[in-house]
């Protein structure tokens, strides 16, 4: 799997309250949630994001509330993958459960500016900054998480095991 797009770069400790503020949690409608994605720290995000784009962030991305509406909003907005120095654990589970791929890569987190071209190659295990011609390797995604994604998320994975 390979993802290519433009980057949206954020710092450390991006919490799920700013990814999708609680005032919009009155619905489970994915498109409605996506229309408010990142609103409180990057009001321009929703207008600028294009299908395939990648969020690049620092440490502890997705900390705070367990709201699964956060990865849903990100995925539905068109973001193909999130690359961060590290992820908060509930967000990590939630993202893979709904099929949003996360990549832990500390070097990448420090070497991107917003709007640069990025390529994330899951098989090769690298993140490329196409605008700067730099390449960074990341530690492989755990096999268990890749199985989830291959099965289409947690629920299809469970149902398959039950058969």
């Amino acid at each position: 799997m390979k993802y290519t797009g433009h980057t949206f770069v954020y710092g450390d400790d991006v919490d799920t309250d700013v990814i999708i503020p609680a005032r919009y949690l009155k619905t489970t409608d994915a498109a409605e949630l996506a229309s408010h994605c990142m609103e409180d720290i990057d009001p321009a995000f929703v207008e600028k994001v294009q299908s395939g784009d990648v969020i690049v962030a620092g440490k502890n991305y997705g900390c705070g509330s367990s709201r699964e509406q956060a990865p849903i909003a990100i995925k539905t907005s068109g973001i193909s993958c999130v690359v961060a120095h590290s992820f908060a654990r509930i967000f990590y589970r939630n993202a893979f459960n709904i099929g949003l791929v996360l990549v832990e890569c500390a070097d990448a987190a420090e070497n991107f500016s917003s709007g640069e071209r990025i390529e994330v190659d899951l098989e090769a295990g690298h993140v490329k900054n196409l605008s700067q011609g730099k390449e960074f390797t990341f530690k492989p995604i755990p096999e268990f998480m890749l199985d989830l994604v291959a099965d289409g998320g947690l629920i299809p994975h469970i149902l398959k095991k039950q058969k």
Binding site: S66, I90, R93, N94, N97, L154, I155
Partner: peptide, 10 residues
């Protein structure tokens, strides 16, 4: 421990 909605549905 806290998890998300899909984990709890599971």
């Amino acid at each position: 421990t806290g998890m998300g909605s899909t984990d709890v549905a599971g």
